[in-house]
Simulated scan of single mutants.
Amino acid sequence: MDDRAIPFLRVSNLTKHFQVGRGGLLGRNRSVVRAVDNVSFSIARGETLAVVGESGCGKTTLGRLVLRLIEADSGQIEIAGTEIRGLDHRAMQEFRRRVQIVIQDPFGSLNPRMLIGQAIMEPLDIHSVGTAKARRARLAELLDLVGLPQSFAARFPHQLSGGQRQRVGIARALALETDLLICDEAVSALDVSVQAQIVNLLQKLKHERQLTYLFISHDMAIVRHIADHVAVMYLGEIVEIAPKAQLFAHPAHPYTQALLKSVPRARVHERPELAIKGDIPSPIDPPSGCRFHTRCPHVMGICRSTPPARTTVGPDHSANCHLLAQALPAAKGQTA
């Protein structure tokens, strides 16, 4: 069987709520932020799942849950068939070698007093990988892999540009023969021309090293270039998930349609439509029923009271919307 057909990362019913504030006697009755709510998806080995949505939808929290930087309240996370939420300390050390993150601000992740070479070799030192000579050879290999001159090993972070620092972040993330890379807004802080270079580098590395990406972004244009599948999040829930081509050609959920209409046009005189009206509700008190109903142009009575079930609208394509369930009665209640 083709490895691409087997989920390398499988997330099932993942939930994370944060308690905030102190209200009530002795701190009881505190408010709860529903950051991630019953999220499920899978990614095949060597493919990219992009998670998109507005700020505050839960994308970054989802990435941190997969990394176990924070612990989920419930749900399962499987890497290559292994449930990682129950791993002990020693097993987690091995897991850390397989799963790494590239964050939005590479400068913030680099010690300003540490040379670039030291920063890239730090994971190798921590995990005691090889001899000192082997680690220096690995450093040279990693710099070449991300397109940086060997001389950069003797520079400090402030001596590099934003794009160069992000290449350092990628090199460090790949130092331990990583399988899964979580890219959390990895190009959003860069100039457009530099964004293209980093995205092309990530694509090249994915194909050469059979990497699997969870690519978190709010930029639909970048997602269109890099993703194989796309999951659309709104207020902690995945409201639509589909192969990239299908989602961009036939978006099923009104929120996805609105996101795509908001993408800037290539021609100067063509302005994006302001398709999403109103502010995103608070995750502390999300709307009842469908969480998007307060901003949806197609809202119906049932949307205000009943959460929509996942409806299959095509191969590997599903969305949570009452409108779809009514239009496709045979598919009503099906799960993808």
Rank of each mutant, 00 (worst) to 15 (best):
Q150C: 12
N29R: 09
F18P: 06
L205S: 01
R98C: 12
T15Q: 03
P123L: 09
V263P: 03
D184E: 02
S151F: 10
L180P: 02
A252V: 02
Q210E: 13
H218A: 06
R113N: 15
P149H: 12
G289H: 07
M1K: 07
L67A: 01
I276H: 02
H127G: 07
P283N: 11
H218K: 09
S161M: 09
N13F: 07
A186S: 10
E141I: 12
E54A: 03
P281K: 15
D144L: 04
E237I: 11
I284P: 05
K206W: 00
A5I: 07
L110P: 12
V146S: 07
Y213I: 03
V99G: 13
V232Y: 07
S188R: 13
Q334W: 00
S40K: 10
R4L: 10
I170P: 01
H293Q: 14
Q19S: 10
A231H: 12
L124R: 01
G63H: 06
I198Y: 14
L180Q: 04
A249E: 02
S288E: 11
V299C: 07
Q76K: 15
L201C: 04
P123Q: 13
A5P: 00
A153E: 14
A196N: 15
V32Q: 15
P281E: 15
I70L: 05
G333Q: 08
R30I: 03
S262F: 01
E270C: 05
I116E: 11
Y213C: 03
L145F: 10
L214N: 05
D279Q: 15
M92W: 02
H225V: 00
P308I: 09
E141P: 08
H229G: 00
A137E: 15
N111L: 02
G56T: 14
K261Y: 06
P307N: 10
T212K: 00
A134M: 10
D2K: 05
D3K: 01
A266H: 14
A325V: 00
E71D: 11
V99E: 06
A5M: 05
Q334S: 09
Q93E: 04
G314H: 12
C57H: 08
V51D: 06
R304F: 13
P307G: 14
R165V: 06
Q150P: 14
V32K: 11
C183S: 03
F292M: 14
T61E: 03
L247I: 10
R310W: 14
T178G: 00
D285P: 01
D219W: 11
P112F: 15
Y234N: 08
D88S: 02
L142K: 03
V232L: 13
C321K: 06
I170Y: 01
G236V: 10
P112T: 12
S188L: 13
L87P: 00
G23E: 01
I216P: 06
G58I: 15
G56Q: 11
A80S: 12
P283D: 02
R267D: 08
F18A: 06
D285I: 04
I77Y: 01
D125Q: 09
I6Y: 08
F95H: 05
F156D: 10
L180D: 03
C321T: 02
L247K: 11
C290S: 02
A242R: 08
E71N: 12
L26W: 14
T311R: 13
D73K: 04
G63N: 08
